[in-house]
Design a protein around this nucleic acid. Structure first.
Length: 430
RNA sequence: GUGGGCAUAGCUCAGCUGGUUAGAGCGCCAGGUUGUGGUCCUGGAGGUCGCGGGUUCGAACCCCGUUGCUCACCCCA
């Protein structure tokens, strides 16, 4: 390392994702793309930063995220922007701007930025996969969105996943309940935990989230959210949970589930991993945001979405099944002791046929190259040396599971790419 | 923003109450009759002990500061 200057490091709370770890990212994103596409969601790519108002009005000026966790900056023409702290607000801004026909169903993969102190499963830059469905209040879409999430988790290989679901009601139900809860807490505030004894007035619903036994026992005695839902909201909720049951998706109602963004109405849900023992065990969540489109300047339009953090998914996956093996980086390794253009050409031929090929550089010894071949995880090594070159041949050596007698053989160089292809095919079928 | 723990080789760590040339395993490189991997053997490279100051005859070890990492609170994915 250069001693005269201090080496740079990635910023606090950010991480480099390197191979082979990054192959899990590739697989995860590809799977989500597949699951979402199957349900009719199309990819959306939004800017990474927006006018700061998009997020302030979007997720609510009172939310912690908007108040103290945003990465805001002023550009050279004094416009105030913020790095996106989550995906939904940008998608809704985009919806309002472009007036697509509804229902509009999109999925995304995006980094998200929040200025917080990092800890296990929480970062200043993390990455979310999500879907948004804008333009219908049909409970079937609630079910569909949750089903996309569920199928995605299952196909990823997660088994220890709980789905908790709740309804906050529409605005009137919610206000009615908040008033009742506030009144109740006013009368019994001395029983609340230190932290909420004061703060419950400004952020009443948060008390439901408190894990301290003081608050839990108070709110258990207090007014319950389901009792304040109007007939339509109750009906909507039943339709959603009935739909989940029809699809065989296990759920449980959690009347304390109130999520941190202000925009949620009616359905809210959260997936948590039983395998994660850290404080952050939510691997995904979402809900309805029937007022958000208006709040961002559009016509009143119901909508629902879901988001999931890749880092936590991979933590959960690792916690469930630590011994996952990474996929090998290549299938064929070319060992070339002649520094020949022919090795380069053969690699190119094979790669054109869709085979992943690696090779050594810097003219190493055959032994050294064979070691690299072994470590690469390749199934075949192709040896090109003096003997082969003189005979117009190449040597094919199986690196895995063959008896000694047919481990290695020579074939003509001409047409060898296809022969190697066929051999790989044959090996894959066994 | 608040609090705890930790910083020694590329990685995981050891280093007894401060004592002189800072170690191991893995990884990496090179060899083991000059064309062959995995096991084994031998050798090698690689560290101003996070950084700055202080105490001391002497500091990886003690003290202060600082930076970073990590865990937790808040909140969230």
């Amino acid at each position: 390392m250069n001693q005269s200057e201090k080496a740079f490091q990635s910023p606090v709370g950010t991480h480099d994702v390197l191979p082979p770890e990054s192959t899990k990212w590739q697989e995860t994103i590809a799977l989500f793309s597949d699951v979402a596409s199957r349900s009719g969601f199309g990819l959306i790519v939004n800017p990474l930063f927006e006018d700061v108002g998009v997020f302030q009005r979007g997720i609510g000026e009172n939310s912690d995220v908007a108040r103290k966790e945003m990465y805001t900056f002023t550009d050279r023409s004094d416009r105030v922007y913020a790095l996106r702290p989550e995906g939904t607000a940008s998608v809704v801004r985009s919806f309002v701007q472009h007036h697509p026909t509804t229902p509009w169903k999109v999925w995304y993969f995006t980094p998200a930025f929040r200025y917080e102190r990092p800890q296990a499963g929480r970062y200043r830059q993390h990455h979310q996969l999500g879907v948004e469905a804008i333009g219908t209040a049909d409970p079937f879409i609630d079910v569909e969105v949750i089903a996309v999430a569920w199928d995605f988790f299952r196909e990823l290989g997660l088994r220890e996943i709980d789905l908790r679901i709740n309804s906050m009601g529409h605005e009137d139900c919610r206000n009615l309940y908040v008033d009742a809860l506030l009144q109740f807490l006013n009368a019994s505030s001395d029983r609340l935990c230190d932290e909420h004894r004061e703060s419950f007035r400004s952020n009443t619903l948060r008390v439901l989230d408190c894990k301290k036994t003081d608050c839990v026992s108070v709110t258990t005695d207090g007014p319950q959210l389901p009792d304040y839902l109007c007939a339509e909201c109750s009906e909507h909720f039943s339709a959603v949970t009935d739909g989940l049951s029809v699809l065989g998706i296990p759920w449980s109602r959690d009347v304390r589930l109130v999520r941190g963004f202000d925009y949620y109405t009616r359905t809210t849900f959260e997936f948590s991993s039983r395998a994660l023992d850290s404080a952050q065990n939510a691997v995904g969540g979402g809900g309805r945001y029937d007022r958000l489109v208006e709040n961002l300047g559009g016509d009143p339009t119901p909508a629902i979405g879901f988001g999931s953090g890749i880092e936590r998914l991979l933590l959960a996956l690792q916690a469930e099944d630590g011994a996952r093996t990474g996929t090998p980086s290549c299938r064929v390794f070319i060992v070339d002791t002649l520094k020949s253009f022919d090795a380069m050409l053969l690699a190119s031929e094979l790669r054109s046929l869709g085979v992943s090929v690696e090779r050594a550089y810097d003219g190493r010894s055959m032994k050294s190259q064979m070691k690299l071949a072994d470590r690469s995880g390749a199934e075949l090594a192709i040896l090109i040396g003096e003997q082969e070159a003189n005979a117009g041949e190449i040597t094919v050596r199986r690196l895995k599971g063959a008896a000694d007698e047919d481990r290695q053989f020579r074939i003509a160089r001409a047409g060898s790419a296809q022969v190697i292809m066929d051999l790989l095919q044959e090996m894959a079928e066994q």
